[in-house]
Amino acid sequence: MTDNITVTVNGKQHTATADDRLTLADFLREKLRLTGTHLGCEHGVCGACTIIVDGSAVRSCLMLARQADGAELETVEGLAEGGKLNRLQQAFKDNYALQCGFCTPGFLMSVTAALREGPVRDEDEARDVLSGNICRCTGYQGLVDAVLETSKEMHS
């Protein structure tokens, strides 16, 4: 069955058709052409497709578009503020926390959700926050540093 669904993405409302089986990730990428959200495994492990749905970090490959009807979505395209990198994005850049960049949107959204819940106090906590996403390029050291730096700025 194909029906229209309406979602708010990064503050902007969109209405588009969605088959019953269309994943939320494919809906964002193909129907709304928001291609910043990437698919790395499509079985919920790598975390590249992580977005924020009604405040919670979600794997958009494991959710159907129809389940998001009426939801508030946040994706990597909505992070920059006034055309400038936000604090977390800038910390990623400053700490060389990305290389190929394919997994980066998922990391940004996971960490964004985590930092809203409270500060990340030390390296172990940072690694815990990051452990739901896979990066094959960086070895994570820059990501850990970026999370700690951002948390310190946000929560000091």
Partner: peptide, 20 residues
Amino acid sequence: KRREDDRLLTGRGRYLDDLD
């Protein structure tokens, strides 16, 4: 600092499946 980063951090990367 890397020139590539701004587009990759803002979801404007151009990976194959992102190409129009």
